[in-house]
Design a protein around this nucleic acid. Structure first.
Lengths: 107, 107
DNA sequence: TTAGGTACTAACAAAAAAGTAAGTATGAGA
DNA sequence: TCTCATACTTACTTTTTTGTTAGTACCTAA
C-alpha cells in the first residue's frame, strides 16, 4: 500500500492519471487541462510516472514538436483502483459535508 | 481521488491504517509495531486521521495512562480500498521485479 | 522520596516537494 | 531574416514534511 502511494502520490499525479486513463494526450493538452500546474511540475510528474512504467511517452519527429502521453498496459491495471479511490473520496466529501451541516444545526 | 490521497497520504499513514483495520491498538503498541517511526510523527499522523474522522481516540483515566485507537465507521469503509491498494502494490512489485530480471537476461 | 511506565509536547534542524521565472532547440512559414 | 509554436530545462526560492532531541504530567509502588 505504501508502494502504491509512492507511485500515485504527488501533487499532480491524480490529475494526470485521471486524464490519461481516458486516452492519449499531448503535453500541451495536459498543461491546459490541469489548471494551475507549472511546466516544471508537469514534466517532473510525467517523468516519474514514465519511469515507474505507468505511462509511455511518444515523440513525433515534427516541428513544432509533438509528444503524446498514454497509459501502458501496467498503467491500465490501475483503472479500477483509481475509480475506487475517486468514488471513496466522493463519498467521504459527502459524509464530511453532512457532519458539518449537523454541527451547524446543533449550534 | 486527490482527496483520498490527502487523507491516506503521509509517510506513516499506510502503516497505521493497515494495523488499525485489524482492530484496536494502544499508542505504545502502534509505536512498537511500526519500526522506525518517531513519537512526534506517530502522534501527528494519528491526530490527522482522527481529525479526518477515520480513527477514534479513547482515553482511559488510569495511571499510567492508557489510550486506545480504533477505526470509526467511516474509517472502516476504507477497508476494501486499502486491500485493493495493497494488492495492486504487490502486483506492481512482482511485475517490476520481472522486468528487472528480463533486463538482466538481455544484458 | 524517588524511580518508573505511559502518552504525549515543544523547539529546532534537515530533507523533500513544490513553486517561480527565465531560457533553449527546432524548422516552418511570413 | 525574424517570429512562432511546442515541449521542454535550469537555477533558485519557498513551503511542506519529516526527523531529532529533550522535556512534561500523572499516580503508583518500593
Amino acid at each position: 500500500m505504501a508502494n502504491t502511494m509512492r507511485i500515485m502520490g504527488g501533487r499532480w499525479k491524480p490529475a494526470i492519471l485521471c486524464r490519461l486513463m481516458h486516452g492519449t494526450m499531448r503535453y500541451n493538452e495536459l498543461k491546459k487541462s490541469i489548471e494551475g500546474i507549472s511546466e516544471r511540475m508537469l514534466v517532473a510528474q510525467l517523468r516519474e510516472l514514465e519511469n515507474d512504467g505507468i505511462i509511455a511517452r511518444v515523440i513525433y519527429p515534427e516541428v513544432p514538436p509533438r509528444v503524446e502521453y498514454h497509459t501502458t498496459d501496467l498503467g491500465k491495471t490501475m483503472h479500477d483502483l483509481i475509480n475506487a479511490m475517486a468514488e471513496w473520496g466522493h463519498m467521504y466529501r459527502t459524509v464530511a459535508e453532512q457532519k458539518v451541516l449537523v454541527q451547524e444545526a446543533i449550534l
